[in-house]
Amino acid sequence: MAFQILLNIGIAFLWILLRNDFTVIDFLVGYFIGFIMLFVLRGLLNFEFYGRRVYAFFKLIVLFIYKLILANIDVIKIVLSPKMDIRPGIIAVPTDLDTEWEITLLATMISLTPGTLSMNFSENGKTIYVHFIHIEDKDEAIKEIHDSFEKAILEVTK
């Protein structure tokens, strides 16, 4: 992946030299052209195109912003309800992610999404303790975290 980005930057510099003047816009145009060239030649050069990861990363960010807005509507509803009809609690959420990097990303995203706040890790880093503001069904809550964020993070890193 690092080699592909280097190749892409090299193509961008070639484009700048051909254009005969140096601006940021020219560099971006060159980078975009290199991106398309790598995409077209991906079968010939025998590597996995890194654009797929970029696409997965953008998908993760869009999912994240969507969940962040949902989270705020959720909190506002609870704050403005006259009777605080909530059932909070701490649930142990097991995770399949391996590296510290991925687990940190997952914990950060849990903290900023609806009704959840990561509190602590177990010693081997395989379990995150999450504080839920309103538990309706324990298994449902764990499944939702697995389906949304863990899958999206795995798509970026694997």
């Binding site: 909070p88 701490i90 142990a92 509190m119």
Partner: peptide, 24 residues
């Protein structure tokens, strides 16, 4: 938020009375 909640739990700040469960 993570640091504050962790330290609050370690100091022994209690959960609300109506809390359902406490795996930690």
């Amino acid at each position: 938020g993570f640091m504050i909640s962790k330290s609050a739990y370690n100091v022994g700040v209690k959960l609300w009375d109506k809390s359902l469960q406490d795996d930690l």
